[in-house]
Deep mutational scan, measured.
Amino acid sequence: MDLSALRVEEVQNVINAMQKILECPICLELIKEPVSTKCDHIFCKFCMLKLLNQKKGPSQCPLCKNDITKRSLQESTRFSQLVEELLKIICAFQLDTGLEYANSYNFAKKENNSPEHLKDEVSIIQSMGYRNRAKRLLQSEPENPSLQETSLSVQLSNLGTVRTLRTKQRIQPQKTSVYIELGSDSSEDTVNKATYCSVGDQELLQITPQGTRDEISLDSAKKAACEFSETDVTNTEHHQPSNNDLNTTEKRAAERHPEKYQGSSVSNLHVEPCGTNTHASSLQHENSSLLLTKDRMNVEKAEFCNKSKQPGLARSQHNRWAGSKETCNDRRTPSTEKKVDLNADPLCERKEWNKQKLPCSENPRDTEDVPWITLNSSIQKVNEWFSRSDELLGSDDSHDGESESNAKVADVLDVLNEVDEYSGSSEKIDLLASDPHEALICKSERVHSKSVESNIEDKIFGKTYRKKASLPNLSHVTENLIIGAFVTEPQIIQERPLTNKLKRKRRPTSGL
């Protein structure tokens, strides 16, 4: 017993010596996670971090007073192994002897410093981030199933929210409404489509400006004509009531908005009720001829604005009016007729031209339509002016008669200019590109209106002035400009410049 007691005391002394060697000089306990400095002193990692955080910048070693920084600290694995072995020896000594260790306080702390507990403390002390800490805590505590279930439920809930957000973003663009038309193969669909197009076009005519009305009406008319041609002859009974509906809707729209509806009346003529396609083609032919005449008058307007600064050229074209007008009339009417003589009366030419125009518009179905009313009214106005011209010709002399006839021709041009508003800008460009020769010939008609105004002003003063002067240069210039014009009389060319000069002198006297 005595020997055993001596041996136990010796073992205890050895353990105490080893414990003092492996103590931390700051906390005076076994080193936890030993860290060595540049001066080869060993301290606990937790104690050194606490010391360095007390001051900004480098701190001093507690043993040798040298500078220490966080970067200079290094882990010493050898001392950590020695500490672990010492703890194992102490545990074995207690089991063999059955005696508690003399320094129970220190031993209890040593026992608490088992490797499992050290790992837990290291995970908390090290600044490795929240995710690494959570992982280490889960690994160190596998015995708690409640914690695992809560963490898994949190992760699953987070994943569910992310997935639901993604699915919502994908589903939202798919919620856009999609309209699908289910059509049938019955023959009544074509008639319904035609009526739908006509009503939609009328609404567009009321909303859209004048520049786009003609294009819309032309497209709708083409669509309706194609649909009529596709149907068989057996379905004509269905077409006639639908066309009557079209007429009623167009008349109502014309009564409500007459000014807006006139812009599309000329282009919509071939959508009118037709028994066969031949009647629609004839109407299209007549409309094309009318559009040609209207576009020519538009060309004359532009030329008149350009040549208004040259009064000499405008005056020299006075007698070329009849010849150029004959050529335009021959090209406007498709019928083959002989040219009228140069010395014939211009009023007779106008009456013949009106007689040619009237039969074209005397179809029984055309008179029933609303768009032809505008053309009939313009023709009636022309006839009224010609009836007035006959009365004026009986009273005035030959020279005054010529000037009045020219004035009436200008009035006719004004009437025809009203129809110019109905034609589109695209048709003007096509006419100029296809028929430049006709445009040059028809330019002379509009330029002549300037000389007509001068004659009217001469009649106000009650006299006409003449001068025997020749202007050969002007006649040559005008002959080169206009290709299809005829030779003019030299006496009238000489008379016109004198009248304008005298007018300039006598205007201030009349004002006084």
Score class of each variant (00 low, 15 high):
2 D>C: 06
2 D>S: 10
3 L>F: 14
5 A>E: 10
7 R>A: 10
9 E>R: 06
10 E>P: 00
10 E>T: 13
17 A>I: 01
18 M>E: 00
18 M>N: 00
21 I>P: 03
21 I>R: 02
23 E>A: 03
25 P>T: 02
27 C>E: 00
30 L>Q: 13
33 E>V: 09
33 E>L: 11
34 P>G: 03
35 V>R: 02
35 V>C: 08
37 T>Y: 08
40 D>R: 11
42 I>R: 13
52 L>K: 03
54 Q>L: 13
57 G>K: 11
58 P>T: 09
63 L>R: 14
65 K>Y: 00
66 N>L: 05
67 D>C: 02
67 D>R: 04
71 R>L: 15
76 S>Y: 00
78 R>G: 03
79 F>P: 01
80 S>L: 11
83 V>A: 13
92 A>G: 04
93 F>K: 08
97 T>I: 04
97 T>G: 01
99 L>F: 11
100 E>P: 13
100 E>D: 02
101 Y>P: 15
102 A>W: 05
104 S>A: 11
105 Y>H: 04
106 N>D: 12
106 N>V: 05
107 F>Q: 15
108 A>P: 09
120 D>I: 15
121 E>M: 12
122 V>I: 15
122 V>R: 04
122 V>M: 09
122 V>L: 02
124 I>T: 09
125 I>P: 14
126 Q>T: 03
129 G>Y: 12
133 R>A: 10
134 A>H: 09
135 K>H: 05
137 L>R: 07
137 L>E: 07
138 L>S: 02
139 Q>T: 01
140 S>T: 05
140 S>R: 07
141 E>V: 13
143 E>I: 10
144 N>V: 05
145 P>W: 06
148 Q>E: 06
149 E>V: 09
151 S>I: 12
152 L>D: 05
152 L>K: 02
153 S>V: 09
154 V>L: 12
155 Q>P: 05
155 Q>M: 10
157 S>I: 05
157 S>M: 06
158 N>D: 03
158 N>C: 04
159 L>R: 06
166 R>M: 04
167 T>I: 03
167 T>H: 08
169 Q>L: 14
176 T>P: 09
179 Y>C: 10
182 L>R: 06
185 D>E: 05
191 V>P: 14
